[in-house]
Design a protein around this nucleic acid. Sequence first.
RNA 1: GCCCUCGUGGUGAAAUUGGUAGACACAAAGGACUUAAAAUCCUUGCCCUUUUGGGAGUGCCAGUUCGAGUCUGGCCGAGGGCACCA
Length: 847
Amino acid sequence: MERYNFKRVEEEWQKKWESSKEFSTKVDRTKKKFYCLEMFPYPSGKIHMGHVRNYTIGDVLSRYKSLKGFNVLHPMGWDAFGMPAENAARENNLDPKDWTNSNIKTMKSQLKKLGLSIDWSREISTCSESYYKHQQIFFLELLEKGLVYRKENYVNWDPVDETVLANEQVIDGKGWRSGAIVERKKLSQWFFNISKFSEDLLKGLEELKTWPNKVKVMQKNWIGKSFGSEIDFKVTGDIPVKSIKCFTTRPDTLFGLSFIAISIDHEISKYYINDSGFQKFKEECSKTGTTEEAIAIGEKIGFKTNLTATNPLNLAQKVPVYFANFVLMDYGFGAVFGCPAHDQRDFDFAKKYNLEINTVVKPYDENDNFKVTNEAYPGPGTLINSEFLNGLDAPNESVNETIKILEARNIGKKQTNYRLKDWGVSRQRYWGCPIPVAYDTSGKVYPIPIEKLPVKLPENINLKVKGNPLDHLNDWKEIEIDGKKLIRETDTLDTFVCSSWYYLRFCSPNNHDYGFSKDEIDYWMPVDQYIGGVEHAILHLLYSRFFMRAIDYKNKNFNIQEPFQSLFTQGMVCHETYKDKNNNWLRPDEVEKVNNIVVKKNNPDHEVKVGPSESMSKSKKNVIDPEFIIENYGADSVRLFILSDSPPEKDVQWSEQGMVSSYKFIQKFWILHNEILNVVKKNSSNDKRDENLEKFLNKTIFKISNNLEKFQYNVIVANMYETYNYLVKYIKEEVSVISLKENYIKILICFLPVIPHFANECLKTLGIKKINWPDYEKYLMDDDEVNYVIQVNGKKKGLIKSEKNISQDKLMNLIKNNEKLTRFFKKNEIKKVIFVKNRLINILINE
RNA sequence: GCCCUCGUGGUGAAAUUGGUAGACACAAAGGACUUAAAAUCCUUGCCCUUUUGGGAGUGCCAGUUCGAGUCUGGCCGAGGGCACCA
């Protein structure tokens, strides 16, 4: 017997799959479809272990579903626009396109070596003209529908990347990619009107039953719906302003009013532009630190105006108006009313400026003299000191009642607010999808006519310029449409736009006139299972959900609104980190273990500091190169290991020993397979069936099928090891050839999703061509014998093997004849017996 | 500060959904084979007992139940998300 040559076998099968177009799919309405999609990669150079895990999980599912008879769509493509290409190209004097395409070539060949069941005929790349042409058409469609607009406002400016970032791309006040501290800058920008769909995006979450709760909660919080009312406050003072509009979720605390606070960007600020005190205050505000957290816990400061506001429910009460650093311009109306007794921020502010603290809500267990003193009381209770509102239950009853009164008196109305803001999509970069518009000298917007699309990115350009390279290309910028001389938009689209609709393109990758064909969308969409990292919980997933709605808006393309029926977020691949004496990171292959001490390789005196296991990253050098591993152990071994150690949704620890043991498992199984092969070649005409074997293997089929449905891929690997351990023992004893052959084939098919090359090879040596997922037999699921657990007063005292469905009396007799068991209650009276059929018996006695 | 998730051996983890806790794997220790090593195989894994055996045990404390890793309440701890959202 030849030892298992994974290199030869894997290569052969991969070639076979490629030449027979095994995984290419077409619309086939006679079959049920299954659309399995993994988040497509950014072509950064080489694949990493995270990709291996992500795509193995998807591949296991795809292969399982097609064995089950589904028409499976399992495509792959490239999220190919973006900054790294531009940076790498600039550093190495390359064209971003060449850099990107060469990375795609490398990564594609690496993915192929994993033996993924991908329909490569549907491969797409977002940086190709045939892809971004359709994106430009979509852009113009949305413009036409009023879902895209241009406005000047403050943006998050990344000074390192010299580009604008969306709110979602600012993390702890820093750029999500560069890590630079983000600045505020006023620019003219294109926006997608995602906030128009706030309510719909929120409601849609309820439909997504099989999304991780965590992701739904994050999106819900991000959308941030809050219910309350707007209230008009009349103001008097030395400027021509009559009223200030505030948003509040607690209109019922209006009698607790003690000041009005407005944002420094509030329109009223224009009257204070020349006020040196206000200028000073603005400067002060910008100093409070840059991170969100610093701002959140920072001191509340204000600048007092000469304005006086009147409480609309108590006209006798006049309160001061402040500019305050804690009021946000882009939420509500940029103005709030201060109620120090029941809001901690207002409380802190009132303490600092010696403002009144009027208690208007008392906790249920306090009396009417309750007074807020040390900290605000935001909890529930009963309204007090509020005239006609007194006695109302806060907040539910009192908020609704107050809104009714405000509306009746025409001083406010019910209002729902969302935190979600519109999506700024302009980026001052070269390597992205050009925005297909132009401007005349007055700044009027002209869409580029559809027949002139795509607006192509110019090639061979100079990247070594400050800011956006496209801005420097006068030849490209100046165009003529209908005899009018215009200047092109030089901003490109945020790359998240590209990934917001790629799942649609996969359904019709070659559709020429439009981004997709309705016919194919109707068949394939929605994605039945989407798999990817949880880091896209908000950005990519929310944008995609928006995009479906936006394209559907007014012209009804789809029967469905949600692009991703099910979502699975896989965990990361982690590895220990290593640092040498000089605190430099070391790669795992630069260290070794000598006498249980980790040292630098070939340098036993240089002890290495072992850090915690963290997500593999280039910066910490704790990476394992998949290509090296595939080269040494084979694709099946890697697939097996990456699934084996942890549930797919949790982080997994990379372990060299674990990897080796997966490799050995396949080698050992090959030996076993050959032994089985020898046995089943024997004539089996008068061979008896072996029910025990059939039952064991049948249960395994049941378990693996079940675990596949539940994404418990780590347990499947355990099931595979159990099967091996069982068969190794079995083959040494008397063997039922017929039972073994029939069921062993089924078992190999169950192994196929995880280790496809190996399982296919084994099936080939058995002469099996037609492969379908095996059904388990119900009649083989039950055992004739069961192990009864014998409990005395709820504690396990022993086991009794008996036939199935035995009566309670018969079981009691067995127990009474069992010396080891009967002694527990010989001397004591039996009070009660709990009998659970085929499972256990619990005998209660007096002790 | 608010929200979400999770606490099971030395480690990663299983547990038919309320019914034998620790499947499967990694690591460790001991043993077999070997001149030796590697590889392979076997055994062990908390406490008491020489053994037979007995006891404790799923972060902690209560509760429900004949029976709780699983359900309820409280506490402690870890991870993640949001962050002046009025």
